[in-house]
């Protein structure tokens, strides 16, 4: 494809990204840097503020059986409830990523089984990359930017909840130094989704061809958008390796939670994705 085609592809994916992802990096950074006027996020930094902040977390709750809830310590129930809210938001985010994937030219023409495989293996990687713009070294925006939850608070939760977010913070702080903007992110997410080495793919060639075109578009985009940032394309591709390790560790933690938490009930969509994943 010539440069004009690659630019058109970049524009198309950026438009799809804006259409399907409600909290962009531009918006998130404005909130994090206090440039949104009176519209400041509610800060959750301890159990009391978590309780107060629950009303902001506008997600469908997965009910915990009343009896079990009564037999639990109040803070344990609160942690589980919060974890369930996170799951609901993650399931919604999977839907957004699916819509974005479908907007990648050629994606819906792939074998339907391969579309499922690409999403199954790609979606958690995409969600972790999309967390980065919401994070800084001190905490993360959640609930569409209405809440800022501190990193210290997340670290203070009981194990293994306390271990869930710290690797994402470490990754995100480093990833954010690359200073990608939303239009770069759109292309990078498409590259991740179109990974031809996912286990069980039936027809790898068309996936690799699609990915190659998006990779060319990303390379050109980075040259134009970040002319002074040397080796940015190579650095970004390197992140894909780190990302796989983070997803593997994340899935193992969720599997551990499933074993250790009697009240743990995994969202059916997330269950589907994580079953036999790694």
């Amino acid at each position: 494809p010539d440069a004009a085609d690659l630019r058109a592809l970049a524009r198309h994916l950026y438009e799809a990204y804006l259409k399907y992802f409600p909290l962009t990096k531009v918006k998130a950074r404005a909130i994090l840097s206090g440039k949104t006027g009176d519209n400041v996020p509610f800060v959750i930094h301890d159990m009391k503020s978590l309780m107060e902040g629950e009303q902001f977390i506008n997600c469908k709750q997965i009910p915990i059986q009343e009896q079990q809830r009564q037999s639990m310590a109040p803070s344990d129930a609160l942690e589980l409830r919060f974890f369930h809210s996170c799951q609901s938001r993650s399931a919604e985010a999977v839907r957004e990523v699916t819509e974005f994937a479908k907007s990648i030219p050629g994606f819906i023409d792939l074998d339907l089984n391969d579309q499922v495989t690409l999403l199954k293996y790609g979606v958690i990687e995409v969600l972790i990359i999309m967390m980065a713009p919401l994070m800084n070294k001190d905490g993360t925006l959640i609930s569409y930017g209405q809440i800022f939850m501190t990193r210290e608070f997340l670290k203070s939760l009981r194990k293994p909840f306390s271990q869930m977010m710290e690797p994402k913070f470490e990754f995100s702080v480093k990833f954010n130094t690359l200073e990608l903007d939303d239009s770069d992110m759109a292309l990078f997410l498409a590259v991740i989704i179109l990974s031809g080495d996912r286990p069980g793919l039936l027809n790898v060639k068309p996936i690799e061809q699609l990915q190659e075109t998006v990779l060319h578009s990303l390379e050109l985009q980075l040259k134009l958008n970040h002319p002074d940032s040397l080796q940015l394309f190579a650095k970004l591709l390197q992140k894909m390796t780190d990302l796989r390790q983070i997803v593997t560790d994340h899935v193992h933690l969720i599997q551990l939670l499933k074993k250790t938490e009697v009240d743990m009930c995994l969202h059916p969509l997330l269950q589907e994705i994580m079953k036999d994943l790694y």
């Binding site: 469908k60 609901s88 839907r95 699916t98 819509e99 819906i108 499922v116 999403l119 969509l269 589907e272």
Partner: peptide
């Protein structure tokens, strides 16, 4: 694979994604 991933499959098939998550 489609059988084991019914919700993902539904999300892929429905253009407006009215799947009840």
């Amino acid at each position: 694979l489609k059988e084991k991933h019914k919700i993902l499959h539904q999300l892929l098939q429905n253009s407006t994604s009215p799947v009840d998550l």
